[in-house]
């Protein structure tokens, strides 16, 4: 019906569809698409600064050699492992907490008061400047900082703990910060999904004598699966981009022995410091392919909800 109305009356105006698209297309092509092709082009050349930035080597055409040498380099796999580990350490508690809070917020039988206040509070860390938040954690968790002083005073620790020089100290802080910054967002998303579930199902289950735990695992969770997958994939894409928190927390060094060095930190190092454009290009292309494949899943989710 809608289609017919448009065809009948609007047809002569339809060139305006193109006109209104011009700004987007022009800006997207100049600032995203051309840079993307340029990045891909770069990955096929040997191009870096040698002798501590004094001599430029290249650009020389090397074909796919950058890729093969990148994959042979154990560092890439180590940083990929770090990125995934940091993401999982933050994501698992995040999804568990979000499911729990979402279930409580959307459970009419609980009748929780002040849910708006709680939602507001748990969403807050998401808006905080990640770099300043990380710097705050650096200062608070320093050897002479307030957290250590409280822990020592409460006799939880016998001596101050040097978080920044401990592998799991840094990893724990990165994961903890990611958890804090994202669980509120996830809770709100999951809650919206839970609100959409037909309440008749809950009532029927209750009449049949199901406990709230049974209802959660047998009804809520299966029906929530599409949204859970969506949340997981978007979070994974975000996790692959992890940069601000570990970069500031470890002062660009990636923590003790680079155990918290992520892929984007490596990319940043290639572009900004070592000016190894060949490697930066190859790494970007790989990240592009991986995120592109992941976002196809998100794309299918979005087009499904369209209909």
């Amino acid at each position: 019906m809608k289609q017919k109305v448009k065809r009948g009356k609007v047809v002569s105006f339809n060139k305006w569809g193109y006109i209104f698209l011009i700004p987007f297309v022009v800006v997207y092509v100049t600032f995203q698409l051309i840079p993307l092709f340029r990045t891909i082009y770069n990955s096929l050349f040997e191009n870096y600064m040698a002798n501590g930035g004094l001599v430029q080597v290249g650009p020389n055409w090397v074909g796919l050699k950058n890729y093969s040498s990148m994959f042979k380099n154990p560092d890439l796999w180590k940083y990929l492992g770090n990125t995934m580990l940091l993401w999982i350490m933050g994501f698992v508690p995040q999804i568990a907490m979000s499911l729990l809070l979402g279930a409580w917020f959307s459970d009419p039988s609980l009748r929780l008061k002040g849910t708006r206040f709680f939602k507001t509070v748990i969403y807050l860390p998401n808006l905080i400047m990640a770099s300043a938040f990380s710097m705050l954690f650096v200062v608070l968790f320093a050897v002479g900082g307030p957290i250590n002083s409280v822990l020592v005073n409460l006799k939880i620790l016998s001596a101050p703990f040097d978080f920044m020089n401990s592998i799991w100290g840094v990893r724990g802080l990165v994961a903890g910060m990611n958890f804090l910054m994202w669980f509120g967002n996830t809770t709100i998303l999951l809650m919206a999904g839970m609100m959409g579930i037909d309440t008749n199902l809950y009532e029927a289950a209750e009449v049949d004598g199901a406990t709230s735990t049974q209802i959660f695992f047998r009804i809520t969770l299966p029906l929530l699966r599409p949204i859970l997958i969506y949340v997981m994939i978007t979070s994974l894409i975000g996790g692959l981009q992890m940069f601000d928190v570990p970069q500031i927390l470890t002062n660009k060094k990636g923590g003790p022995l680079e155990t918290s060095m992520t892929l984007i930190m490596l990319l940043n190092r290639h572009i900004g410091i070592s000016k190894n454009y060949g490697m930066a290009g190859a790494l970007s292309v790989i990240l592009f392919i991986v995120t592109g494949a992941l976002s196809l899943v998100v794309f299918r989710f979005n087009t499904k909800t369209e209909k």
């Binding site: 997207y28 600032f31 995203q32 051309i34 840079p35 993307l36 092709f37 340029r38 990045t39 891909i40 082009y41 770069n42 978007t234 894409i237 692959l240 981009q241 940069f243 984007i264 990319l267 290639h270 572009i271 454009y277 930066a280 290009g281 970007s284 292309v285 990240l287 592009f288 995120t291 592109g292 992941l294 976002s295 196809l296 998100v298 794309f299 979005n302 087009t303």
Partner: peptide, 17 residues
């Protein structure tokens, strides 16, 4: 919709050049 999730970091090299 397809390009929605592509991070800006992957084009950063070409962007800066």
């Amino acid at each position: 919709l397809m390009v929605m999730m592509i991070p800006t970091q992957v084009t950063a090299l070409g962007f800066v050049q």
